[in-house]
Amino acid sequence: MPDVDSVVADAGSKARDQWYGDGLYTLGYSALFLLLGSATLIPLPVRPFWWEHWAVFVPLLVLAYLVLRERSPMMHWLKARITYPRTGYVLPEPEQLKRDDWKRYPEGLVVVFSGIWFGLYPAPWIGLILLAGGLGFLWGRFGFSLFIPTIALTGILVAASPMPASHPVAYMAIVTGISYFIKGTAQLVRYLHHHPAAHLEGEGSRV
């Protein structure tokens, strides 16, 4: 006889997987990081004071919050065209959505730390890749982490770029955006491949 608690837990996990499984949130994060990185690299017409960068970042972060929060109309608009007609609509419990959030903190810390590192030592990226590999091995039990390709790509970009590494955090943000873009696109393609729309045409939700 199946245990009621494990059946409910399994249903919650499946709903969460479906919520993020279409890759739309990952693509949203990608756009955010790319915008943040680009905004830092754009030369301002006047000599920037420290607060002028905040004038760019704060509206972007507010926009990101409005677009990427769980019940945002923008995400529902996208999902209504891509996800709901294929696999139906489900809104997981807020606790389910926040379940693994803490795993992102070490990733974010490593990205910021590496950004500062590149600012001080632009060349020795091989050491950082090795460091990332070691940390990735330790964190392997939490699943694949995007910080490994992010650091590797940033190292390659900094080493190959003719530009001085004067904006290390911008490089990190751009490469993080590229990593998220690759991951999100792969998720979306896989989702669309597994759930083609053709045989679902005309199938609305009905009771």
Binding site: V7, A15, Y84
Partner: peptide
């Protein structure tokens, strides 16, 4: 069981599950 685990779900989702 499905509805207890989520905030809300539509007909297609329930049918698939």
């Amino acid at each position: 069981s499905v509805l207890y685990a989520v905030s809300e779900a539509d007909f297609i989702y329930l049918q698939n599950e």
